[in-house]
Structure formats: structure tokens, C-alpha cells
Computed example of a mutant assay.
Amino acid sequence: MPRKFLRKFSPDPAKLKQHKHLQFLGDTLHLPYLWHLNRRNVASAFAIGLFAMWLPIPFQSIIAALLAVFFRANLPLAVALVFVTNPVTMPPMLYAAYELGAMIVGHPGTGFNFEPSLDWLMNGLILIWKPFVLGIALMAVISSLAGYYGVHLLWRLHLLQHLKERRARKLRPKKSAESNDTPPPQD
């Protein structure tokens, strides 16, 4: 993976360590594995971020950060990936998760009539919670596994391409000083 690209968008660890609102974390932010950009840390961060983005609760990024510390993953990447879900993308994603769960459970009928009211949350959600939770759990696990193994695959392909280019450079004939001379003019 291109480390320069990832570092470009990653926050500076020194600035975060000095931030006044993060002082309660103590030395946790000083742990070097939270900032490393290697295959294992990046793949773990993708798995954590793509898992946490499916949680239909507020403050998903805090859960991703705690999981990144626990599993020794890249902290900024895990938190950033949670923001794939936002107010625009969350409703269709959660609806797709519900449909998947309903298909597996065999829930009668497709879809549900959503009403943004407290009454619907109290009564309507009770009717669909099983397929909804099953769909979210499946999508979270599938996304997490796809992210983890996808990063490993892409990292390996990038590494193989880099090695192939290095071998090609070594096999190219080098131009010597003699070949750079122009041949004498012929009359």
C-alpha cells in the first residue's frame, strides 16, 4: 500500500498527544503500534472501521478507537473508516441490512413502513428487530472480513508489482561510456 498516501491524510501523533481534550488517555496515545502503517496494522484498522460503521448507534468512532487500541491497529485509519456511514449513506445501508436479515429469517413481506416518530420506534421496531439485528451483524462481519483480507491482498499485489519493477530495472543493460560516444563520420 502506498504509505505516503496514507500518511498524507493521517493526523500528526505529536499534535494529538498534546491536545488538551485527549490528556485523559495518558500514555495510550504514545503507543507506537497505533500509528504504524504496516500490513497488519492497516488490515486490522480496515476490519475494525468497517465493522464499527455498521453499528446503528451514535459515537461509532469511539468504539472504533477503543477496538483499535485493544487489537493494536492503526488508530486514525480505524476511526476514519467509520465515517463511510453518514446521514446520507446510513439509511440505505441499514435498509439493505434489514432486507438481508428478513430474507434469511423469512420475515413476511418486504420492507416496512418507517415513520419518524416515537410511536413507530416503540411499536414498529419491535416487529422488525430480529431481521434488523441479524442483517447488521452479517453485514458488519462480511465488511470486516472483506476489508481485512482485501487489504492483505492489495498490499501483497502492490509488493509483487514493486519487486517485479525492481527486477526489470536490474535486468536492463546499463549504458557504458563507450556506447555513448558518437561513431566517427564516414566519408
Score class of each variant (00 low, 15 high):
Phe46Trp: 09
Ile57Met: 13
Pro2Thr: 11
Met53Asn: 14
Ser44Phe: 13
Ala97Phe: 02
Ala73Trp: 00
Met1Lys: 04
Lys17Phe: 00
Lys170Phe: 15
Gln23Leu: 07
Ala14Leu: 12
Leu34Lys: 02
Tyr95Cys: 01
Ser10Arg: 09
Lys8Val: 08
Ile126Lys: 12
Val105Ser: 01
Ile104Pro: 05
His107Thr: 02
Arg3Lys: 15
Asn41Asp: 05
Asn41Ile: 00
Gly135Pro: 00
His21Gly: 08
His107Met: 00
Ala45His: 00
Pro183Gly: 14
Ile136Val: 09
Asp119Thr: 11
Leu67Ile: 02
Trp129Gly: 09
Leu163Glu: 12
Pro131Glu: 05
Ile126Gln: 11
Asp27Pro: 08
Ser61Met: 13
Ser61Ile: 06
Gly147Ala: 13
Ile128Leu: 04
Ile63Gln: 03
Lys174Tyr: 13
Val88Tyr: 09
Leu100Phe: 11
Ala96Tyr: 14
Gly135Asp: 01
Glu115Leu: 12
Gln60Met: 02
Ile104Val: 13
Ala96Pro: 03
Leu77Tyr: 03
Leu138Val: 06
Leu121Met: 14
Gln18Val: 06
Tyr149His: 11
Pro91Trp: 02
Ser44Trp: 10
Met93Cys: 10
Pro58Val: 11
Tyr33Ile: 12
Lys170Pro: 10
Gln23Cys: 00
Asp187Lys: 12
Ile48Trp: 00
Asn74Tyr: 07
Pro173His: 09
Val82His: 02
Asn38Ser: 06
Phe132Glu: 04
His19Gln: 08
Leu66Asp: 00
Gly135Leu: 00
Leu121Tyr: 13
Lys174Gln: 14
Leu94Thr: 04
Ile142Ser: 03
Ala102Leu: 09
Asn180Gln: 15
Ala73Gly: 01
Phe51Gln: 01
Met93Tyr: 05
Arg39Trp: 08
Val82Tyr: 03
Leu171Ser: 12
Gly111Leu: 05
Arg3Gly: 14
Ser10Asp: 08
Leu31His: 15
Lys15Tyr: 10
Gln18Asp: 13
Leu31Phe: 13
Ala168Leu: 14
His158Phe: 12
Arg167Asp: 13
Thr182Gly: 01
Ile126Cys: 03
Phe132Ile: 07
Met53Asp: 08
Phe59Ile: 08
Pro131Asn: 09
Phe83Cys: 03
Ile57Pro: 04
Lys4Ala: 15
Asn123Thr: 13
Val105Lys: 01
Tyr95Arg: 01
Ala64His: 01
Gly135Phe: 00
Pro131Tyr: 03
Arg156Leu: 10
Thr89Gly: 05
Lys20Thr: 12
Arg39Gln: 12
Val79Arg: 05
Ile104Gln: 04
Glu99Gln: 15
Pro184His: 11
Arg72Cys: 02
Lys8Tyr: 15
His162Ile: 06
Arg7Val: 11
Arg156Tyr: 10
Leu22Asn: 10
Pro92Lys: 06
Ala43His: 01
Leu157Pro: 08
Phe9Arg: 03
Phe114His: 05
Pro116Phe: 06
Lys20Pro: 14
Ser10Val: 08
Ile126Phe: 10
Leu22Val: 06
His158Ile: 03
Lys164Ala: 10
Arg172Pro: 01
Ile128Trp: 07
Asn86Ser: 07
Leu37Arg: 06
Asn180Ala: 15
Phe70Met: 11
Ile62Trp: 14
Pro92His: 05
Leu6His: 00
Arg169Asn: 05
Ala78Cys: 07
Leu75Gly: 02
Ala97Thr: 03
Ser144Ala: 14
Phe114Gln: 04
Pro91Leu: 05
Lys130Ile: 15
